[in-house]
């Protein structure tokens, strides 16, 4: 197997794990072995490495985005008051 083909197969393998790697979500963790293999590939692959950087930038952009719904702190307070009334009513 040529080096190029092997690299392409690793790109394919990596592409299927990059989102899980970035999210590190408890529902879909990678094994330490997968993380190590993925990171080794990202360090040398000129396709996958920059792609991961772009995904990181995208995630960051979305967290700063003005489309993010704004929640009025007064609304949080009102719900908290509602919660207090809901749970206090029965005790007294």
């Amino acid at each position: 197997m040529s080096g190029t083909v092997r690299m392409m197969m690793t790109c394919h393998w990596s592409a299927r794990r990059i989102q899980r790697y970035l999210d590190a979500d408890p529902s879909a963790p990678l094994t330490p072995g997968e993380v190590a293999r993925l990171e080794a590939h990202l360090a040398v692959c000129e396709r996958c490495g920059p792609m991961v950087a772009e995904h990181r930038a995208l995630h960051r952009a979305l967290s700063l985005w003005s489309g993010r719904p704004y929640v009025d702190p007064a609304a949080v307070d009102r719900v908290r008051t509602f919660l207090d009334e809901l749970t206090d009513g029965r005790a007294s």
Binding site: A75, V76, V79, L83, D84, L86, T87, D88, R90, A91
Partner: peptide
């Protein structure tokens, strides 16, 4: 009444940190 009080307190502790994300 004590039990209801405990239940209310447990519920409040559960819910309070989630109010903002729920909204």
């Amino acid at each position: 009444a004590d039990a209801a009080d405990d239940r209310g307190r447990a519920f409040r502790e559960l819910v309070e940190p989630e109010i903002e994300v729920m909204l």
